[in-house]
Design a protein around this nucleic acid. Structure first.
Lengths: 327, 327
DNA sequence: AAAGTCTGGAAAATCGTTTAAGCAAACCTA
DNA sequence: TAGGTTTGCTTAAACGATTTTCCAGACTTT
């Protein structure tokens, strides 16, 4: 049916070894023969069988990607970056969704091994460790997580976000998270808190406790919202605008992750972006170097960067300038 | 290193054929032996080698997914649905990004074949046909596309969106698309137009020509915006709110695809959703049935459904059309 | 008790590729 | 010109599973 190495060899009157060598560049093949083989391959449209190759070499040319939630809005940018980084070294990407479940996660890892993945990139479910496997694993998690290999500097990101607002004169902030148990969100929030000066007031709100009325919080004096995700920032921003408040005139809003919509709304959302290409490239390089027999590299932390758009501006001039500033 | 079928057979004093039979259920194996083998497998943590199996059976248990743009915000829902549908039948998913490029697309397909995919789901780049391959291909494209296998009923979706607005009394609509050359967007727009009555005014705006000033369009009489994507609907909605207009008080907004943020903004975005699980399941079933030797099924069109949220409401009474700018 | 049927299992071929080892001819080198 | 090197290629053995074919013994049936 489909052409194999043997077919090419037979038609050309050489051995399969020669054809294989011609393709891989290994062994010794004359330029003339090499040329002949190349032409034949073009002619009959030969594609090598990954299965045969994988069986012989023990390498499939495929990396696994195990995620706790494929439908996360951050996923597109991440998957694209990983795919691109993997393609760079000729690898394909096999995806799996662990649905935030530890058992499903280790099942997914097993399935990856079974399918012959050469290495696995895992974004672990909350609070799970990836059990040791026979193949290289790159773990993308919070800095503090044991076993972490690569991650964004969420903490520093939080700091930068708050510093940006402080520089604009904001002294009364709302820090907005979704879930206390997310280590990424905790890292971001603690980074925000670390940047606070004694003169600033702050209130942490978790959406898992219910959605607050942002407009009334602003009426109580808050002049800025820093969310741990653009999604939550958008929730706040649209609610504020719907209530007739001006962003950034009355209140500034900052998010995280530069999601697809962030640049396309009015006002453009100021955000702290992960350097996805760098994170992906690092994770893939981490796997590749181990495939080559290098020792497991140290964990790497990739900086986040502030993208200033129109949703942040100077703090509104308050009528009561410094009633709360105690010196 | 890693345990193989042979190791189990040797340790148990049986042949590899028996072990293989015990696992697959084929052949005849006594319950006693079967049990013994199961225990041994648990004990030493055996995982079959996909490469060996694939080579012998010609089946890898992996399906390819080739997309024109992984970073599309619709991707998460789609990828998740495909992954789930494939997992249902024990298949894994190998992803590739064609970056909207026809050459990259056919290269990606070749790579899938090389990697031993059993079938491929392709969302083709604009205007490209997927060349015939030796393995089953399910194409997800516009209804009108030649070779299309599965798709959402974009046209009917557009119709439903406009009918919803007409029922609310809107008679002056803005239809908002991104690119004229996208067949999905064209289908949606033409569906919208098909629903129009003679008494309704309409204006089609393409974002590729530049972002319009929606507020002034509303001042000129428009009372609703129907966008071909929630992303564009959000662009319009935030711009309108930023300009002090009330949604849906002054103007209603409808989008498409129920993106991740659509339910979480204020007001919640009314949208036309694709039935991703159904589309994915259909595409995967399409492949699987062909793998089993069935003839290629006819193309299927999956209905879209209207999700009414808070961004649409009754058309404003003409005399009240003045924007309500109170703070 | 002879003949047929069932049952549990083994032997061996096979999938398509890579690669180590070997071998003749051609080419140097001294 | 004898001995060593290179060159270009072949032979054959893996890799780890599945599957067809076959066989010996136990069990039925008449």
């Amino acid at each position: 049916m489909k052409p194999k190495l043997k077919d090419i060899a037979r038609e050309l009157g050489v051995s399969t070894a020669t054809v294989s060598n011609a393709l891989s560049g290994n062994g010794r093949v004359s330029e003339k023969t090499r040329q002949m083989i190349r032409e034949k391959i073009q002619e009959i449209g030969y594609l090598p069988s990954g299965a045969g190759r994988a069986l012989r070499t023990g390498r499939s040319g495929v990396l696994g990607l195990v995620l706790p939630d494929i439908s996360n809005p951050l996923f597109p940018a991440f998957a694209q970056a990983i795919e691109a980084a993997a393609a760079e070294s000729g690898h394909g990407i096999l995806i799996a969704d662990s649905h935030g479940d530890a058992a499903a996660q280790s099942e997914a890892v097993d399935r990856m091994i079974e399918r012959g993945a050469d290495g696995i990139v895992v974004v672990p479910c909350r609070g799970t460790r990836v059990s040791d496997t026979s193949l290289p694993v790159a773990i993308i998690d919070a800095v503090s997580s044991p076993g972490n290999s690569v991650c964004a500097d969420h903490c520093a990101g939080g700091r930068v976000a708050v510093e940006h607002l402080l520089a604009l004169g904001h002294r009364n902030l709302i820090l907005l998270g979704q879930s206390r148990r997310s280590s990424v969100q905790s890292d971001r929030i603690s980074g925000m808190q670390a940047a606070l000066t004694t003169t600033a007031q702050v209130r942490v709100i978790w959406l898992e406790d219910g959605t607050p009325d942002f407009a009334s919080l602003v009426r109580q004096g808050a002049t800025a919202v820093v969310a741990t995700s653009d999604l939550h920032a958008l929730t706040a921003l649209t609610q504020l605008q719907g209530a007739g408040l001006s962003v950034p005139g009355d209140v500034s809003v900052v998010g995280f992750d530069d999601l697809s919509f962030s640049a396309r709304i009015t006002p453009g959302l100021t955000t702290i972006a992960q350097n996805m290409p760098a994170i992906a490239a690092t994770a893939v390089a981490y796997l590749i170097s181990q495939l080559r027999g290098a020792p497991r590299p140290p964990a790497q932390v990739i900086p986040m960067s502030l993208l200033v758009r129109a949703s942040t501006g100077p703090a509104p001039k308050p009528q009561e300038a410094t009633p709360n500033m105690e010196k």
